[in-house]
Design a protein around this nucleic acid. Structure first.
Length: 219
DNA sequence: GACCAGGCACATC
DNA sequence: GATGTGCATGGT
């Protein structure tokens, strides 16, 4: 049994409204194509987005940010290009796994992935080595536009510190916490998650016992 | 120099 | 099932 405070739909929408008023529309994901979103989702695993941008710029600058060209690359070359994103050997391997899935299941075309059945696509993505629930849901929501709420470290930290959920709540339970209380709209899930990340970066540091001057606290 | 960042897989108990 | 560890760069 997951311990969650009694917070209803209106309360959670009120949280969203406060964040939206505080930070404005976020316009995520910061990527130009669905493929860039998918690659970025892997590159940003436990990594500062600024470093991911450097890696993506390397790929773009070399004209290599396409499924075919990346699938044809030597893993060593790919790793060198994404080096600024950290964990570069690991991530080169994970991108390779995703590309092999894309080739096998969708003919190496993102159009195929984007038109696949959402539930089945999620199950398949989770079978890809190196794609966990957050990465899968990021691809589903931000590349394909399907209403899957993306849960990340900030989400868990912020909502547990405010007493809405346990600090060690599982990914699936925390995702359910949101999906049970929100209208199933991709645009809302998109903006809410982005706002949570923005809030976390600015107000919810790991070491501080609670958020300082948090926009979610009463004024 | 320590801390942190939009995770995930795997080993061990 | 819970807990610990490796993976790595770059900004603050």
């Amino acid at each position: 049994m997951v311990q969650t405070m009694k917070i209803g739909r209106r309360d959670l929408m009120a949280v969203y409204d406060r964040l939206h008023r505080a930070f404005g529309p976020q316009g995520w994901w910061p990527g130009e194509t669905p493929f860039e979103v998918a690659v970025g989702a892997i590159l940003t695993q436990n990594t500062n987005w600024g470093n991911v941008e450097k890696a993506l710029a390397n790929l773009k600058g070399a004209g290599l940010l396409t499924p075919r060209r990346m699938a044809a690359m030597e893993p060593r070359r790919l790793a060198a290009l994404i080096r600024p994103a950290g964990f570069f050997n690991l991530k080169a391997e994970r991108i390779g796994c995703f590309l092999r899935y894309l080739a096998k299941r969708h003919g190496l075309r993102m159009e195929g992935l984007l038109t696949a059945d959402p539930g089945r696509l999620r199950r398949e993505l989770l079978e890809v080595r190196g794609i966990g629930p957050e990465t899968a849901d990021s691809i589903l929501l931000y590349a394909a536009g399907h209403p899957f709420f993306v849960v990340d470290g900030y989400t868990r930290r912020i909502f547990s510190r405010h007493g809405f959920v346990d600090h060690d709540v599982s990914y699936d339970h925390l995702q359910e916490f949101f999906t049970r209380r929100l209208p199933e709209k991709a645009a809302l899930f998109n903006e809410f998650h982005a706002l949570i990340v923005t809030l976390g970066k600015q107000f919810c540091r790991p070491r501080s016992p609670r958020c300082e001057a948090c926009p979610l606290d009463p004024p």
